[in-house]
Amino acid sequence: MSEQLHFAEHTLQEVALGFMALVYCIRIYWFTRFTAGKERQPPTGPASTTPRKGILFSWGIIGMPWAMESSRKNMFMWLQFVLFHMGVVAAIGLSFIIPYLPEVLAIAGVIPTLQVLTGTACVIGVMRMIRRLGGKHMRAISTPDDVFSLLLLTVWFAFAFQAVPNSTANGEWQLMTYFWMTAFFLVYVPFSKISHYLYYPFTRYYLGKSMGRRGVFPFERGQPQAAPTGTPGAPALANVGAIQRVKA
């Protein structure tokens, strides 16, 4: 291993990681300086829908594709979301495994698993880029940051895929590029939309708390029902008098 690669795998990563942590701390401090709105309203809905249940439901909703129409009607998109984020976890994990736990890669199945995850994420990244640039609505809501962040991740996945074997047999450039990209990624993330995961717990917490208090979350009082064959224009089920309840 060259000195440059060693630097990229260790010092560079540690500095970048430290920078990201520092910026995130500042960011969280900035965010929490905004006062949370207090809710005085008396609870509505059934007693079984509490703020606590609402929060848990809200946090877990991305894992329940049946709970939201936008996921339920676009299961392929939801699957892409899952695989893409699994790729993110794999690529981030790789940046720790190679410098600190390289022996993990010797375990049977680890390399192919990581390559499948990062490779699939890369393909999905390309698909998402086509969707973002090809669709009228997606183009209209996209900023340069949105496009760049997706491009950055997609290319990063490609290099992560190549870096997985942790081999310099064909030169160091794949590993070198992967680690330099990882460092750039760590520095860039707090300023980009990629930092959405930092806010996810907060936004879903507050929405869940409010919706739980009002009896909307979790949807336990009669699941919102999709039309049998899609609506509008779906045939009605005549005389559906009974209320479908998840809980009696």
């Binding site: 965010f31 006062t35 949370a36 709105g37 949105d146 939309k193 959405h196 806010y199 507050y206 409010s210």
Partner: peptide, 14 residues
């Protein structure tokens, strides 16, 4: 601006 609104404003990933 309160925390709920700011959270929603910064969290959208388009």
């Amino acid at each position: 601006l309160n925390r709920q609104v700011v959270g929603s404003l910064v969290a959208c990933v388009h």
